[in-house]
């Protein structure tokens, strides 16, 4: 599971969705790996508006990466700064969470990540 994916995920429990604490989910016991993915500057620039930057900063820190700037880069920043582009690419698209858990900050439910696949099926009492 990519870090970019994590930026779109919240708790599957319906009653959690209204709570700010359910996003982003918090990685726990995360085992990370880095994939080689060809960089696609246009995709990165265009995907930027869909990213919740505050949540990405939280995730990045929780995974043990250096702190991201408070404000997201602009499209101009990204296209003119190759280093920043590469770093963002590595974080969002190349970094994989292979094993571990994703924890909801609201209900505390833990979703397992195994072999790179997060499982959001809920036990019947939480559906």
């Amino acid at each position: 599971m990519k870090v970019l994916t994590l930026n779109f995920l919240t708790c599957a429990v319906k009653t959690c969705k209204a709570s700010n604490d359910s996003f982003p989910l918090h990685p726990k016991d995360a085992e990370l790996a880095k994939d080689g993915v060809e960089i696609n500057p246009q995709l990165l620039v265009n995907v930027l508006p869909r990213i919740d930057w505050t949540a990405l900063r939280t995730t990045s820190t929780e995974l043990g990466f250096p702190a991201l700037p408070e404000q997201p880069p602009t499209a101009e920043d990204l296209t003119s700064d190759e280093k920043m582009l590469q770093e963002l690419h590595t974080l969002l698209l190349e970094t994989q969470m292979l094993e571990g858990k994703l924890v909801c900050g609201h209900c505390g439910h833990e979703y397992a990540v195994r072999e790179g696949i997060a499982n959001f099926l809920l036990p019947s009492h939480l559906v």
Binding site: L9, K17, D35, L122, V127
Partner: peptide, 22 residues
């Protein structure tokens, strides 16, 4: 570990009635 041609996509297990997307 496939370096080239990896599609930019991701997959997860979820129920369509309890989607975990914000």
């Amino acid at each position: 570990s496939h370096e080239s041609g990896a599609a930019i996509s991701d997959v997860l297990v979820a129920d369509g009635l309890s989607l975990p997307f914000r």
